[in-house]
Amino acid sequence: MVMNLGNKELWDELKFELGGMKLNKLEGVKDKKLLLGAGNRGADILFIGDDPDLYDDEELKVSLGTSGEFFMKLCDLADLSPEKYYITNLSKCVLKWRELTGNEREHMRDYLDMQIAIIKPKIIVSLGQEVTGILMGKEIKIPEVRGRIHSYFGGIKLIPTFDPSYVKRTRDASGRKAKPAIEFWNDLKMIKGEIEN
């Protein structure tokens, strides 16, 4: 799906605004770039994480051995090709959400809401407890909300699941039969099923 010109203009404006933002904790950090995300901006699936390793650039490039490489391999195995999704982080940079100031978080949440409005996904997949809590507007525990489809604004389906970096750590420590890895895989299959319906 190709974005129409109006959406491209909105996206370029959003990118420009983000590029002009200064984050306190990025001073002195080697990688200062701010990225809206990566993938197909017209996709039905929007993955939202809080992990700087999920993507290195807008073309879905990932570093070897990272949670991003692990995540993309699992998506490929679940037949969720990169054309089917867009992925973004809450903080849009190498920092995690909790490292941002309250004011910076407000700005980043505005950028995220604008991204959602422009992309118009059918499904938002929240990767991890922090992201899910922010989107649901309350404190949650992933095991209590994952495995089910929740409602988000505008009729969008919200599917919470584990943070890929957590899944990778538990799998590396316990093998591929680790419970979070099995449940994460089941969530990916559920997402694929929802897109096909």
Rank of each mutant, 00 (worst) to 15 (best):
D57E: 05
D57H: 03
E58K: 13
E59W: 09
L60F: 05
L60A: 07
L60N: 10
L60C: 02
L60G: 03
K61Q: 11
K61N: 15
K61C: 07
K61M: 08
K61P: 00
V62F: 04
V62N: 03
V62S: 02
V62K: 02
S63G: 05
S63H: 03
S63C: 00
S63W: 04
L64T: 09
L64S: 10
G65W: 01
G65P: 03
G65Q: 03
G65R: 02
G65T: 01
T66V: 03
T66R: 04
T66H: 02
T66Y: 00
S67R: 01
G68T: 06
G68K: 06
E69I: 00
E69V: 00
E69K: 02
E69D: 01
E69Q: 06
F70D: 04
F70P: 02
F70K: 03
F70W: 07
F71I: 04
F71Q: 01
F71L: 10
F71A: 04
F71C: 05
F71Y: 14
M72Y: 12
M72T: 14
K73G: 01
K73S: 12
K73T: 09
K73D: 14
K73Y: 09
K73V: 10
L74R: 15
L74E: 15
L74F: 11
C75S: 10
C75K: 08
C75P: 04
C75H: 10
C75F: 11
C75V: 00
D76F: 14
D76A: 15
L77W: 09
L77M: 11
L77I: 09
A78R: 04
A78F: 07
A78K: 06
A78G: 06
D79S: 13
D79L: 11
D79R: 08
D79E: 14
D79W: 07
D79H: 10
L80V: 13
L80Q: 09
L80T: 09
S81L: 12
S81N: 14
E83A: 03
E83I: 00
K84R: 12
K84P: 03
K84M: 14
Y85G: 08
Y85N: 12
Y85T: 05
Y85K: 08
Y85M: 06
Y85L: 10
Y85R: 11
Y85A: 05
Y86M: 12
Y86L: 12
